[in-house]
Design a protein around this nucleic acid. Sequence first.
DNA 1: TCCATATTTCAACGATAAAAGAAATATTCG
DNA 2: CGAATATTTCTTTTATCGTTGAAATATGGA
Lengths: 123, 123
Amino acid sequence: MELKTATAALAALAHEGRLATFRLLVQAGPGGVAAGEIARRLGVLPNSLSANLNLLSHAGLISSRREGRSIIYTADYDGMTALLGFLVQDCCGASSEICAPLYETLVRSACCPPDATPMRETA
Amino acid sequence: MELKTATAALAALAHEGRLATFRLLVQAGPGGVAAGEIARRLGVLPNSLSANLNLLSHAGLISSRREGRSIIYTADYDGMTALLGFLVQDCCGASSEICAPLYETLVRSACCPPDATPMRETA
DNA sequence: TCCATATTTCAACGATAAAAGAAATATTCG
DNA sequence: CGAATATTTCTTTTATCGTTGAAATATGGA
């Protein structure tokens, strides 16, 4: 990923409404959420949301598909992964013990550790 | 981390100059880099850089300390970790296999896997 | 075809952020 | 104390972003 691409993705997320939208879609999973449903849940105007969805989409962070009269938006996990990868890319250039806690936090923040272990037992 | 805090951090990074600055500091490690040195390396005016460093600092992404006549800036790995944690926080709400590749990418992007294994052998 | 629903596009206004030059503050050394 | 270096602060100008209302496009069903 290039600097400009990453900047555009970060700019897309650097907005309360868009960040909330993105997280909503991330949590919703592959099933996605219709634009109108997003607008209702977040309490924003449909046209404002549309502009913001368009921005997130151009940044490669979300995708869309039509389903009947509705347009379903989904998080683009590849784009999200690329952005996060770019941010941590050379984090250990100087000393590798610095970013070790980073992984612990990331693993704990979500539900699926790198091993794909469902994280049931603590050991 | 709250939505507003995360938005501020993302806004701080959503700027080519600031993103380049942040990555430079992340790569530089705990030793940090003096403001003047950053300006020289990135080819930006000192006053512009100062404003951007201030923004990154208020966002909790970098820290600073005075050393003689220079002010040394360092990446704030805690702030960085908090932001990334917020972004991946509920990524598997729907189906846990979705964000499994995310960890693989993150581990490969940097140098220190969660196990603190130096990543020499592929197995 | 006609109407209702869902979403997007357009145009305009106000607010916010970025860039640059000049001046000010802090530190070191003679 | 005075000069030089390092960084920040102030001020102005310019450009970009966000919001809103109204109209336009697309789909599904009577």
